[in-house]
């Protein structure tokens, strides 16, 4: 996004307030004006309630950044500063200690791909990949993510090129309403690594066999994906999609358009 510089036209009180909150950025603001990212950071380090108290003076400037105002939390208790990476980009936020990673992604970082199905660990719709492992973002406190690397469904594609798992879900029609899909795909992507590491599951014939790069049967795929519930019941197609990415052979597509093309 093009950053539009706004000329610094601050009162002494405003300047002091900014300086207190963003000492590192202050000289930049003085020389090249306030940019959108400064606002973002300002929101991140303070939260709206603090801003209201500290920065009434620069209300004018804030108002002009209306679109991001919605993302600011209304009230933070027991605030924790966290720095972590989301889909490759560093994020610095202050969060309420109660805030989950899921709510942080959706409400603070505008990454609404990860879904809230149950909010209690029972459905997998909120699955994201943290430090290369699939986890449930609804039971992960954001405060625990300091220094971690988070990948969400938004971070899987490379530019316009879909991740092979995304492409395969489309090819095999691995969804109906799509609500569980971001979680299914993140889960399946991490599963590919688990299989490469030779990790076992409850249906692994013999856990004492520690072969690497195991070939997953359909039963294995189903067991390992059981943490992702699909209310539309797209399971057979989800298994097909995963099998295609996991195996080296193309798996036949079972649907076609009404005119017979695929």
């Amino acid at each position: 996004m093009e950053e539009q510089a706004k000329l610094p036209d601050l009162t002494e009180a405003e300047r002091k307030a900014l300086e207190e909150l963003m000492p590192d950025e202050m000289s930049e603001i003085i020389t090249s004006g306030i940019k959108r990212r400064h606002f973002l950071k300002l929101f991140a380090v303070t939260g709206a309630s603090l801003l209201a108290a500290h920065l009434l003076g620069i209300e004018q400037l804030m108002a002009r950044s209306a679109p991001i105002e919605q993302q600011a939390p209304v009230f933070i208790e027991n605030g924790i500063n966290i720095s972590f990476k989301v889909n490759g980009s560093p994020q610095h936020l202050m969060v309420d200690s109660r805030m989950t990673l899921l709510d942080t992604l959706r409400e603070r970082l505008n990454l609404t791909g990860s879904k809230k199905g149950c909010d209690h660990g029972q459905c997998g719709a909120c699955t994201v990949i943290v430090d290369d492992r699939r986890v449930l973002s609804c039971l992960t406190l954001a405060a625990t993510c300091e220094d971690k690397k988070v990948t969400t469904i938004e971070g899987l594609a490379t530019g316009n090129e879909l991740h092979p798992m995304q492409a395969s879900f489309i090819k095999h029609d691995g969804f109906q309403c799509g609500y569980c899909t971001p979680g299914q795909i993140c889960s399946a992507v991490a599963l590919m690594d688990e299989a490469k590491n030779g990790e076992a599951s409850y249906v692994t014939a013999n856990v004492r066999n520690k072969n690497k790069s195991i070939k997953l049967s359909d039963e294995e795929i189903r067991e390992r994906m059981s943490g992702n519930i699909c209310r539309c019941g797209a399971y057979p197609n989800i298994v097909d999609a995963i099998r295609e990415v996991h195996g080296d052979k193309a798996v036949a597509q079972v649907w076609q358009f009404a005119d017979g093309t695929i």
């Binding site: 997998g124 699939r134 076992a200 994906m225």
Partner: peptide, 15 residues
């Protein structure tokens, strides 16, 4: 190993 793998889901066991 079997007992742990019988519990919860892959995501939960990772956490």
């Amino acid at each position: 190993a079997m007992a742990i793998l019988a519990g919860a889901s892959a995501q939960i066991r990772n956490m």
